[in-house]
Design a protein around this nucleic acid. Structure first.
Length: 204
DNA sequence: TCTAGGATCGGCT
DNA sequence: GCCGATCCTAGAT
């Protein structure tokens, strides 16, 4: 718990330098920490999706695309890849594997452990029904994650954004695997079971 | 330089 | 359940 007795330790670079699907599964239960001038927000990750690089039609680096936007994905693991969708929402990804292997894990949602009031105040519309941030756009809005955070090193607790481990593990029987969301254009790849959720977290 | 479209969300019917 | 918002990116011209 943040503010509690248990310490949250930043995940080391080696955590991310593994197969992307493995990293995605292991990120469930980890703690995403956001620190700004306004205060600290901590979220326990409960939903992620894996994006498997050049061979994945749903991935921004499919076919070896290497443009300024996705440059971060081609770099070292453990860095944040943030992009804008639909001109409105931001999405937070964690670069895995690499360098030269442009894969990533999309953080889709979680439960707020600390800073709930801050999250609520940042949500312009209705506040969350529970202690949830259920969707990548809402997560970034609640944590004030923007393009300015693209390329942030998530291994450094000194930065404004990092991911840590407080010793809580999610057992296999509480993990649900399924197809990814919103990638129908990717054809067959849309059905790949690359979405991981902690059982009990809300369905969108 | 131009144009099409998107890893979403929330309001309205 | 459907549809519009909104603007950046990438690929085409």
């Amino acid at each position: 718990m943040i503010g509690g007795r248990t310490a949250v330790r930043p995940l080391g670079r080696s955590f991310y330098q593994r197969p992307t699907v493995e990293v995605a599964r292991e990120l469930l239960g980890k703690v995403l920490v956001r620190r700004t001038a306004q205060g600290l927000v901590a979220v326990r990750i409960s939903e992620v999706e894996a994006y498997l690089g050049v061979g994945d039609p749903a991935c921004h680096t499919y076919g070896g695309r290497r443009t300024p936007r996705v440059e971060v994905m081609w770099g070292e693991a453990g860095f944040a890849y943030v992009y804008l969708v639909y001109g409105i929402h931001h999405c937070l990804n964690v670069v895995t594997a690499g360098p030269g292997v442009p894969e990533a894990v999309l953080i889709r949602g979680g439960t707020v452990l600390a800073g709930g009031e801050l999250v609520r105040s940042r949500r312009k519309a209705k506040g969350p029904r529970g202690p949830w941030v259920d969707g990548p756009g809402k997560l970034c809005q609640g944590l004030e994650i923007t393009l300015a955070d693209n390329g942030t090193d998530l291994c450094r607790a000194g930065g404004g954004l990092w991911i840590g481990d407080d010793g809580v593990a999610v057992p296999d029987d509480r993990v649900v695997r399924g197809p990814r969301v919103g990638v129908a254009y990717a054809g067959e790849a849309a059905a790949w079971p690359l979405r991981f959720q902690t059982k009990g977290s809300p369905e969108p």
